[in-house]
Amino acid sequence: MVQDSLGILLGFFVAVTLQVLLFDHINLFGFSCPSVYLFFIISYRFDRSQFFLILLGFLLGFVLDIMQSSSGANTIATLLISFIRPWVIRFSFGIISDSNSLLSMKSRMGNQALYIGLMILIHQFVLQSVAYFDVTHTTLILRNTLVNTALTFILLLATLNLTKKKN
């Protein structure tokens, strides 16, 4: 139990550190920045407490908002995907998945990609909508959502494959 909690704490710390120090500086095409910290929420075991995940999702977004001097978009977006994650899991894998962890899952790659893609797409759409908060910037919101989703998706799939090999 203690080892489990320490693992989550370490994952949280690594996600924040890598995002702030490394991935926030990528700025592909001058505007695109991947949200690789989502790996922490996506890879959180399915059988662990959702209550705890909602708290962690909120804290993760809040810490990133503070570190990026942004206005709260990360907090709301990360909190929302932590809350809706069970529905996304059911939609992607069906009622019962073959494993409780994405890291040891043997389901078809398509299901895993659908789950990761949906989580990133919803997160990015909420993040950009809250950041711009103006309907006149719909094109910009959609452009940033799609490009950031694609970039984050590629990086998260690569991270997932690397982590799986290690296990």
């Binding site: 909120f58 809040f62 908002d65 709260g72 907090t75 709301i76 909190l79 932590s82 809350f83």
Partner: peptide, 17 residues
């Protein structure tokens, strides 16, 4: 409890924003 916690934290998030 999950929904209530989510709404409570969302409120904090909106106030923060």
């Amino acid at each position: 409890r999950n929904l209530l916690l989510f709404l409570f934290l969302l409120g904090i998030g909106i106030v923060f924003s």
